[in-house]
Design a binder for these strands. Structure first.
Length: 105
DNA sequence: GGGCTGACGTGGC
DNA sequence: CGCCACGCCAGCC
């Protein structure tokens, strides 16, 4: 059996979050909140954001993760170009139209 | 232990 | 569509 934690932590969530992010198809995006919910921890989107921020693995397509408004991550200047290079057309204000690119599981 | 921070989400205007 | 207040909660000092 598993000792399901009564409370999530960055350490216990990291591997699971990485696993999901790695599966995001090219040209699609996911939101922090969706990832947190998929891990079984709703209301922990901020924790997912922290995990992305501290992600040392350059092979992780963390540029495919945006917030629920389609807004890109701060302090991540190359994210926009990485997304457009995958065929994602950003709005004039630099946001991802989730209506078109959100990865529906 | 206590207060502040933040790659968030939702609802109101 | 944008801005803001509020709720949320682990991590950090």
């Amino acid at each position: 059996m598993v000792n399901a934690a009564t409370q999530p932590s960055e350490a216990t969530l990291r591997a699971e979050v990485y696993d999901i992010v790695r599966q995001i198809p090219r040209g699609r995006v996911l939101t922090y909140g969706r990832i947190a919910a998929l891990c079984g921890w709703p209301n922990h989107s901020r924790l997912v954001g922290r995990i992305m921020r501290t992600a040392p693995d350059a092979t992780l397509p963390c540029h495919r993760v945006v917030n629920a408004s389609g807004r890109l991550a701060p302090h991540y200047p190359t994210q926009a170009s990485l997304l457009t290079s995958e065929g994602i057309h950003l709005t004039q204000s630099g946001k991802v139209p989730l209506k078109d690119y959100l990865w529906n599981l």
